[in-house]
């Protein structure tokens, strides 16, 4: 009895998913042929004929990928020009940041305490990377690079953009025409220009806006530029959340005697944040990917650090592709994990 059911369920599954009609059968057959053709070649390249040792000569004659380039250069790719002996600091920073991200994904509900915790974490990371106290050597931000820089730019801009975005979102749905117009203008203006132009502004124009006695670090300028950029996108997402809250709640709150800002802070904002979390996470993913652009203005985040490590080394220059794949894998893991998290949140609510 049991024996009869299982094969029939299995064949049924096969029939529905692989051989439903003529087109489906054709696709399945094509797939089998193509994978018989390509899969061995791809696997050979990726694994079986690949070189994993840091041996440029072996890489040159090998028919597979040269993962040795990662073995040889991973320290520069991950940490850029940060002094070699001090690289435990960026390593620690990456660990702390990843841990904090995981914790915040699990405890999102407690967001006001989270915000404070993040502020402390960011400050700690910043001070640790910079050093210059308690026997830690001073490392200028021009020498920061790689993964910690990518993470700091991403998280720093999110942290900075959030308050601005909340203001802009309330501004755009405000009753006051002037405030509404100004918020709308800002949001739409920023959303229609590419991030590159914002980075150019940060690199070339920001220094000219300060009194000439002061100069601002390029890292801080770029961080500010990304923050202003991201705020417009987050504001637009949050506005969607604001609109989703029924007017009855606001009237109820007002009749309880809550002041307008109290209504906004205690009633509207928590709900809007909850409702828009998946879209917010999507914006976070976008900005995580787009920080790779800062290489255009001379900061060596992951992509820039890879170029830095390979361009000056003729032995390893032919193996850029493997380096790109390595970085792509890092980005992919981060983005995929985050998007899965937002999907789960969507399914839960």
């Amino acid at each position: 009895m049991n024996n009869a059911v299982i094969p029939s369920a299995f064949t049924n599954w096969l029939r529905v998913n692989l051989f439903a009609d003529k087109a489906s059968i054709l696709i399945t057959l094509l797939f089998c042929v193509a994978s018989a053709y390509c899969l061995p070649a791809v696997l050979d390249w990726l694994l079986f004929k690949a070189v994993f040792r840091a041996d440029a000569e072996a890489c040159r004659v090998a028919q597979g990928a040269c993962w040795g380039v990662v073995t040889e250069k991973y320290r520069v790719i991950l940490f850029g020009r940060y002094p070699y002996q001090e690289q435990w600091r960026p390593m620690l920073v990456v660990g702390i940041l990843l841990l904090s991200i995981i914790v915040s994904c699990r405890r999102f509900a407690d967001y006001s305490r989270l915000a404070l915790a993040w502020l402390l974490v960011m400050l700690f990371c910043f001070v640790l990377l910079r050093g210059g106290f308690a026997g830690l050597a001073l490392v200028e931000s021009s020498r920061w690079g790689g993964l910690p820089l990518t993470l700091l730019l991403t998280i720093g801009s999110i942290a900075g953009a959030f308050p601005l975005a909340i203001l802009l979102a309330f501004g755009r749905s405000s009753q006051l025409p002037v405030i509404r117009a100004l918020s709308t203008l800002y949001i739409e203006l920023i959303r229609s220009i590419p991030l590159v132009s914002m980075l150019f502004l940060a690199a070339f124009i920001f220094p000219l806006l300060l009194p000439s006695r002061y100069s601002m670090d390029v890292f801080i300028r770029v961080l500010l530029g990304i923050t202003f950029f991201l705020a417009a996108y987050l504001a637009e997402v949050l506005r969607g959340g604001l609109q989703s809250i029924p007017a009855g709640q606001l009237e109820a709150a007002a009749s309880l005697g809550l002041r307008p800002w109290q209504v906004r802070w205690h009633i509207i904002l928590p709900q809007a944040l909850r409702a828009t979390l998946p879209s917010l996470i999507n914006s976070f993913i976008s900005i995580f990917k787009e920080t790779s652009l800062v290489t255009v203005v001379g900061l060596y985040e992951l992509t820039g650090a890879l170029t830095l490590s390979l361009s000056g080394d003729p032995n390893w220059r032919p193996f850029y592709l493997e380096g790109y794949l390595f970085i792509a894998a890092i980005y992919w893991c981060g983005c995929f994990a985050l998007s899965r998290h937002s999907q789960q949140w969507l399914n839960k609510t």
Partner: peptide, 28 residues
């Protein structure tokens, strides 16, 4: 599509290309 292989191929395409920075794709 009704065919799970084609569906899987399209899903993996979307997941791969969406989750890698465009700049990196350009360079590659």
């Amino acid at each position: 599509s009704k065919n799970i292989l084609l569906r899987g191929l399209c899903i993996s395409y979307v997941e791969i290309f969406r989750n890698i920075p465009l700049l990196l794709q350009f360079l590659a």
